[in-house]
Design a protein around this nucleic acid. Structure first.
Lengths: 172, 172
DNA sequence: ATCTATTTGCAAGTCATTTGCAATAACAAC
DNA sequence: GTTGTTATTGCAAATGACTTGCAAATAGAT
């Protein structure tokens, strides 16, 4: 998408926004720059906290509204991360190539992973169904090498037991 | 997982549930059988509606609680479908092989797609990272062949405009 | 500097999902 | 079959992410 690349080249959303009749407000710039600077995905609450360091008056609605705009502009991706971290959405500045989020169901760690097969999926879909892929979201759950070592291969008991929500490994 | 296969073979959850100290209530059976019979993903509300046809007194909390149990037992998968259909979760009885949900951003249609490359991803992750994959969720957004024909290749204007929530194509 | 449409912040809503709790029912042991 | 224990249910109330209405503020074109 040439539009997006152009916007990036001038260090922001200026051109892209202008072409859509959107305005580049202080808040909008800030929210985008936070996502751009973050090396990882953030949820609305985290973005709000970060934004308030620079603009204490900024409201959460502004975060939500701008995330919606940035999604429409396709410069930000929305993820769901398997609800591993609770029921919020996570956002990240759009990456160049497809990648997946891999979550360890034992320790809760989330990392990104890329392999060429991801591109192959899109190509197959295009060829077999004539579908034009805009974005692909791949989320993988399982057990990381460390946890496998630590606890043997078998996942913890499936029996439910209470754990604080923010910590719960939420096996799916 | 041999446990799951066993449970399936006897036509339900009996063995699997017993081994976890869980009870096979009327409601639990019903909810599982609805998902098993459905050829597609359903959300909590749809499951409740269907369940009430057979058990009018069944409550929505029972749906939610049992979906959580069935997820833990790994006989039901939870999807998010890109929030194309609103902010609810969708559930389906666990399928044998990995598959993806492909959503058309224009008409809202969701279909399933499988290509061997999906398996390749899991293998790459296993080989490169020593990660044990439990499940893979692939969600793809874009434009289906029909909509591409109808409206030309370009997606609708990116400019925001109000559309009832249940209908909005929610471009990401 | 002016004008107009977009955007903001606040307050109040919405809605899926969760939790507390007493009553009910599974199922194992008699 | 009866009994006892404990998981599960249904109800009502709460939670929490996200959205909406609206008047005031401001970006950006003229």
């Amino acid at each position: 998408m040439p539009l997006i690349r152009q916007a990036r080249r001038q260090g922001g959303l200026a051109l892209l926004a202008k072409q859509q009749g959107l305005r580049l407000t202080r808040q909008r710039r800030l929210i985008y720059s936070i996502l751009e600077a973050a090396q990882t995905h953030l949820n609305a609450k985290q973005i709000l906290a970060e934004a308030q360091k620079f603009d204490p008056g900024i409201d959460q609605v502004t975060i939500y509204r701008n995330l919606a705009v940035l999604k429409r502009l396709r410069v930000v991706d929305e993820l769901d991360l398997l609800h591993l971290k609770g029921d919020q959405h996570y956002y990240e500045a759009r990456q160049v190539r497809a990648h997946s989020h891999v979550a360890c169901l034992s320790c809760g760690k989330v990392f990104e992973f890329y392999t060429p097969a991801m591109k192959t999926i899109d190509q197959a879909l295009e060829k077999e169904c004539g579908f034009e892929v805009s974005f692909t979201r791949i989320e993988i759950g399982g057990y990381c090498a460390e946890c496998r070592k630590k606890r043997g291969v078998s996942p913890a008991s499936l029996k439910g037991h209470k754990v604080p929500r923010s910590v719960e490994p939420e096996r799916i």
